[in-house]
Design a protein around this nucleic acid. Structure first.
Lengths: 206, 206
DNA sequence: CCAGCTATCTTGACAGCGTCAACATAAACT
DNA sequence: AGTTTATGTTGACGCTGTCAAGATAGCTGG
């Protein structure tokens, strides 16, 4: 035999030692390649070098694995987002522009991951893990919090109900992201112009 | 045997007679029930009363069947849309409000169909049938045409590039529709308020 | 130090899926 | 009437997710 995949610290033991995170890592790559449907638990197990059913000792089913992947996606996006928000010396309007540009860029760079994070596979079926919820819900809620702030800064119309405004503005960037990653708008080259257009519509005159 | 599904005009012949449209009909229902993944060609054939592979004489593969279903979805939406546009005695603003409300209502009433029509299954994989393209592309393009008209009517900002504006406004209603049918915004009860909010953002003062 | 418990990994099996190949039937055309 | 063509059938293959049962190894208590 001896055909096990070698890593630096390969122990080649019966027990893998760190299978769970290895699975999430490899699965994230597989997701990137072939999307949710292209992510096969059997191929995944094969890639990591364990038997078909080994993953089932770390994830109840495919859904739980997907939730784990999505969780990582939310964490990384949260980092990107706070990096944008923490920038100084930027007008609120410019900061908002960068935010939605960064949002769509994240989606465009990780289309399959975005589809997993904000797609129906997890949310429509209502199969989100608790730990995924713990990461995702704050991310959803942040959109409302930020919207309130933007209203207070005079960037967005104060007259509108904050929740509705957040839903519409997030809906917009989500919709643009989806049109992009779903292949309806093929070219990324116009993203910037679209973001500018959205900012013009949503934000009061500079 | 005699277990064939009976219809009024049941001929019980070897040849079905109208299998193709029967398949599309039954498949549309199945889609409504279980979504794209829940639509199984084998169950479908069983439901219609033919053998597993009979559908393959009418559709090259599952994708072609899906395209045929989507085609019907576009036709029906086109009817709804023109009905809205043909209304008289309505201000442009009110007409636009009814349009986006109707759009989202159509999506909410036919979530799985909408997912098929505007989802990645068909467009990302670039597997749309020619006849589907012939129905879908005009529908996409209409959004631009209407946007230009709305700009000329003074409803939407004339300064913005028409194509970008169309992309952003369509992106918005598409995004809201998706958030709704993907189970991220669970309740339909706030649709009207969201539409009002969107109209306020996009359209100049009445 | 060793017995036993538990976590982990294995092979075997099953039902469901889309789809190809080969064959059967009926209708349509020459 | 005879042949082609359209449409239906059964059989088979490889893929999928997942359950059940058995094997191994590491941990924990006596």
């Amino acid at each position: 035999m001896d055909t096990k995949p070698e890593t630096k610290l390969e122990k080649n033991t019966y027990h893998h030692g760190d299978l769970r995170s290895s699975l999430v890592d490899a699965a994230s790559n597989m997701l990137k390649e072939g999307g949710i449907d292209g992510l096969s638990l059997r191929k995944l197990a094969d890639k990591v070098g364990v038997s078909r059913t080994a993953p089932y000792h770390h994830f109840k089913d495919k859904n739980e694995l997907l939730c784990a992947i999505a969780e990582g996606g939310f964490s990384r996006w949260q980092q990107d987002a706070t990096a944008i928000f923490n920038q100084h010396d930027l007008s609120p309007r410019e900061k908002y522009r960068q935010f939605i540009q960064g949002y769509i860029a994240y989606a465009a760079d990780n289309p399959e991951l975005y589809d997993l994070m904000f797609g129906r596979t997890i949310w429509k079926q209502n199969t989100a893990t608790q730990s995924l919820r713990d990461v995702a819900y704050p991310s959803f809620h942040q959109q409302v919090t930020m919207t309130r702030q933007w209203q207070q800064q005079g960037l967005m119309p104060a007259g509108e109900d904050t929740l509705r405004l957040a839903q519409v503005t997030w809906g917009t960037i989500h919709g643009i992201a989806r049109l992009l990653i779903d292949g309806i708008y093929a070219d990324r080259s116009h993203i910037d112009e679209m973001c500018d257009c959205a900012v013009n519509l949503f934000c009061s005159e500079h």
